[in-house]
């Protein structure tokens, strides 16, 4: 029964991500992207990666998508002002993507790994296990990522500040 849940959610993921690409209005794109991320959260729950499910829910669907929506509303782009690319470029883009997926799936066929996914350790994705990993062998990258976030915050404020000297 649960495998059918996976296939249902996977279909929804593909559908919503296609809608992200093909929606004319950028606001609709953001809303479909939120739905796509929600289906990804369901995938994480199905894989019993509960920590990642919660982080995906809070960080992606909460913080990042609010940032996208905020910028879209700030720039007042909620109308179809976007001139679409020429049909030739669109067709070439879709063909290039099709070539990419054919290559990926073809190489996967050559590799032939199809063993079913078995959760050997049920506590693999829980907070306790990941916390021990994160604050043990990965302590230095963890602290460096805090530096990265600080630098990104300072950079974002500096970039979006109006430059009084030139203006």
């Amino acid at each position: 029964m649960s495998t059918q849940v996976f296939y249902f959610v996977a279909t929804l993921s593909i559908l919503f991500s296609l809608m992200v690409i093909f929606a004319k209005n950028p606001i609709h794109s953001v809303l479909y992207l939120i739905l796509t991320f929600f289906t990804f959260t369901v995938h994480y729950v199905l894989l019993n990666a509960q920590f990642l499910a919660v982080v995906n829910f809070i960080v992606y669907m909460g913080a990042i998508m609010v940032l996208f929506l905020f910028v879209l509303m700030l720039l007042n782009l909620n109308k179809d002002t976007e001139p679409s690319k020429s049909p030739l470029i669109k067709i070439v883009g879709v063909i290039a993507g099709g070539c990419l997926i054919v290559t990926l799936i073809g190489s996967l066929k050559a590799a032939s790994i199809s063993s079913p996914l078995i959760l050997k350790n049920p506590g693999l994705g829980l907070v306790e296990n990941l916390g021990k990993e994160l604050f043990g062998p990965f302590l230095l990258p963890f602290e460096l990522s805090s530096l990265l976030l600080l630098a990104a915050m300072v950079g974002a404020v500096l970039l979006s500040k109006r430059d009084e000297v030139e203006a």
Partner: peptide, 21 residues
């Protein structure tokens, strides 16, 4: 599934002109 969604992302980058999309 991951390959398909990655490819959808690539197609989006190639075909759209709106920077946010």
């Amino acid at each position: 599934l991951s390959a398909i969604i990655f490819t959808i992302g690539v197609i989006g980058v190639l075909t759209r002109r709106n920077a946010i999309v």
